[in-house]
């Protein structure tokens, strides 16, 4: 959905859903996801619709992702770190009544 104007410099390696990915130090997790072929961060609990980062300033919470095992982190406020494990959040399984 987005492309870089500059080559990635001061490279950082993260994994996204287990796949290694090069990023530039200082990038936010949301920016890195928007630069991939699949810009989605999560699916909504209600309908399961895909959501991509929307406001990029910490207000909309559409960019919630799992970071190093902790779910519901705001991807647009989190800088990438070497070795960081990011996972897109699938629709939560509904709890049986």
């Amino acid at each position: 959905m987005f492309r870089r104007l500059h080559e990635t410099s001061v490279s950082v390696t993260i994994t996204l859903d287990g796949t290694p990915l090069q990023a530039t130090a200082g990038d936010t997790v949301a920016a890195v996801i928007l630069a991939t072929a699949n810009p989605v961060c999560r699916q909504t609990p209600e309908s399961g619709a895909d959501r991509a980062p929307f406001c990029m300033m910490g207000a909309c919470f559409d960019c919630l992702v799992e970071i190093d095992g902790v779910p519901n982190r705001q991807g647009c406020l989190t800088e990438v770190r070497d070795g960081m494990a990011v996972r897109r959040q699938p629709r939560p399984t509904p709890v049986a009544p």
Partner: peptide, 20 residues
């Protein structure tokens, strides 16, 4: 996905040097 606020796109330009 693909729809975003203009300020968000501007943030990507400033913070990551990214364009649509």
């Amino acid at each position: 996905p693909g729809v975003m606020l203009a300020g968000g796109a501007q943030t990507l330009l400033k913070s990551a040097g990214m364009v649509p």
